[in-house]
Design a protein around this nucleic acid. Sequence first.
DNA 1: TTTCGAGGTTTCTTTAAGAGACTCTGAGGA
DNA 2: TCCTCAGAGTCTCTTAAAGAAACCTCGAAA
Lengths: 149, 149
Amino acid sequence: MQRTRFGEMACSIARTLDVIGEPWSPLILRDVWAGVSRFDHIQADLGISRKVLTERLNHLVEQGVLQRLPYDARPRYEYHLTAKGADLVEMLMVMARWGDRWLAGEAGPPVLYRHHTCGQIGHVDPRCSHCGEPMHADDVDLLPGPGSA
Amino acid sequence: MQRTRFGEMACSIARTLDVIGEPWSPLILRDVWAGVSRFDHIQADLGISRKVLTERLNHLVEQGVLQRLPYDARPRYEYHLTAKGADLVEMLMVMARWGDRWLAGEAGPPVLYRHHTCGQIGHVDPRCSHCGEPMHADDVDLLPGPGSA
DNA sequence: TTTCGAGGTTTCTTTAAGAGACTCTGAGGA
DNA sequence: TCCTCAGAGTCTCTTAAAGAAACCTCGAAA
């Protein structure tokens, strides 16, 4: 499609932004996750221009985050998350959690998350994969890894 | 500064994107988190234009994510994360985790995270705040919350 | 046979990003 | 005292992307 903007950096954040960092992309993924999966529905829900929505959907499909599936036996399509895309939902939940905490104001969170495993309303909580304790900004040191160009 | 793009939506993801969703903003936060905190250093590290860097830094300061602190008794400033900004680092770690998993390729992750609490190399793992079990895309239902306009 | 709805294209205008030269300020040195 | 320098931006101009809105295509149904 076009040259990536951040991709030359040996940084997984930059690489991730090359896939989902363009304007609207996270909201498109949110819509698809929430079941708004058809072109016109996403377009109406977000108020995005059709041209940009076309570009974003194509890019997300190329990157393997969404798949375009026919429905109704005509040239009509729905977009669905792939495994790679579903794995991005935790990022969306973390973003939503931050917005709930810092931007929601008096009214409280606009969306609640019910966890299947326990059946309760909860939110996502980042923990260390090794010890299970909380993992926040001050809890980590950054070290060069094997792929640090 | 200017009208927000997504802000009218009753969605914490959209609201979060109004704060840190513009191009380069997550990478600026990554730099500041990693200790690259001065204007010229960030500019050189990212290769961003000075004009856009100025705009982004102003916006992030206005939003309370960064603070601009003098150093060296002259009109020289460093940018630091506020508590609100530090709380965004978990989002950066989740983004990095996704990039590590899906985009790092042969070479492996460019950056490793050592967790202070346990001293080990780990990665961030999203868990339910209620039961502590994993919280992924298929593990949650979305429900309207009190702030759902 | 025309109409309709889904899913796009195309064209044109407006806005934002990139590149790079220029400015301002106080410190330190000759 | 004057000169130079580094840091932290501005300013101007060019190029690229987003927004708005009309248009096109295909097959199904009326």
